[in-house]
Amino acid sequence: MSWVKPAADAILAAGESLMVEVNASDPDGTIANVKLYLDNKFVRQENYAPYQWGAAGQNDPLLNDLSAGSHTLKAVATDDDGAATTITRSFTVTGDYLTIPGIIEAEDYREGGEAVAYHDTTSGNTGGAYRSDDVDIQKTGDTTGTYNVGWVAAGEWLTYAVKVEKSGSYTIRFRVASQMTSNKTLHLELDGKDITGPVSFNTQGKGWQVYQTEEISGVQLEAGVHILKLVMDTAAFNINYMEFIFGD
């Protein structure tokens, strides 16, 4: 028996909903059912694989609008002989989030580590500034802001717990720089859904600390607490911040 979701020591934003999935099997028989508990409160029993809770179309209110703090999930699988196996997993819900409309500094991604808060292909902070994990951060030479994320590789990403104050159409500005003359691309996802498509830019090789603003408009955002993901689709550029402006 093992956890599929959530990831170990996952960090969610307050108000976010949780999806849970476990794998369960019986080498000498069958699994009769799997029961899920959140903080010792019974969520629901699943009798058939896939053993999921909080998925689309499922009614699991205990997994919605989670409160800030530490929480523990417990899954109990019972086989056809009545033998039970129990696994637990802890996660944290943070009450801290960044507000939209507003500026989100690239370096202010959420806590949680590799594959939860961010994905970085190299170990250590190459820039040596601001944070002590594997995301590469340095003092910025831009006219605004204090730090920038740099040394990016294709496929790396950062996530942010955000609260969108009001639903509607937004203009998003990205403050970026590069010494390379090739086209660069990034995109944004909200709760796992691509909301911008590829945002392409070319700095004409002006320099790692010579910044320009790239803008995309007509991005629809829904009010509430969400997880925003910044995905670097190509390598070799710096990003200082993102600015979200309500309206086009």
Rank of each mutant, 00 (worst) to 15 (best):
A77S: 04
F174I: 01
T144W: 11
T185P: 01
Y211K: 02
V116M: 13
K193L: 12
K74D: 04
E105A: 01
Q204G: 08
S123T: 15
I195H: 10
A129Y: 08
T203A: 15
Y211S: 01
G155V: 00
A129G: 10
D120T: 10
I137N: 11
A129P: 10
E165Q: 06
E189Y: 04
M180H: 02
K166F: 03
Y130R: 15
G192I: 07
G141H: 03
T92F: 14
G150F: 00
T88L: 14
K163H: 05
A75T: 06
D133W: 14
R110H: 09
K74P: 05
K206E: 06
I104L: 14
T72D: 12
D96P: 00
E114M: 14
D120Y: 12
I100L: 12
D194S: 13
A115E: 15
T146W: 07
T181W: 01
G141T: 00
I87F: 08
D81E: 06
D120I: 06
L98N: 09
A75V: 03
E165Y: 02
Q179A: 02
A153S: 15
T171P: 05
A77C: 02
F201V: 10
L188H: 08
D134Q: 06
V152L: 06
A129W: 06
D191S: 13
A106W: 07
E114I: 08
D136W: 05
P101W: 01
E107A: 07
T140H: 06
S182C: 09
L190A: 07
R110M: 14
V149H: 01
T122M: 08
G82K: 13
G102P: 05
T144P: 09
I103F: 09
A83G: 09
H119S: 13
A75L: 05
E156P: 04
K163Y: 04
G168I: 02
S70R: 09
G112I: 06
D142R: 00
A83H: 13
D142N: 05
V116I: 15
Y109H: 09
K139N: 12
W157H: 07
I172N: 04
T94P: 11
V152F: 03
T185C: 04
I87W: 11
N202A: 00
G197I: 05
D79N: 15
A153E: 14
S178M: 00
I104V: 15
V176H: 01
V162L: 07
G82T: 14
E107T: 05
V199Q: 03
G168L: 01
A153H: 09
G205W: 00
I103Y: 12
T146Q: 13
D80F: 10
S167E: 07
T146L: 14
V162T: 09
K184W: 03
S70H: 12
I137F: 04
R89Y: 10
A77Q: 02
Y118M: 01
I100G: 06
G124K: 11
D80G: 12
Y130H: 15
K139W: 02
G127Y: 03
G192F: 08
D80L: 11
K184P: 08
D80I: 14
T85W: 13
G69D: 09
G128A: 03
D136G: 09
V76L: 11
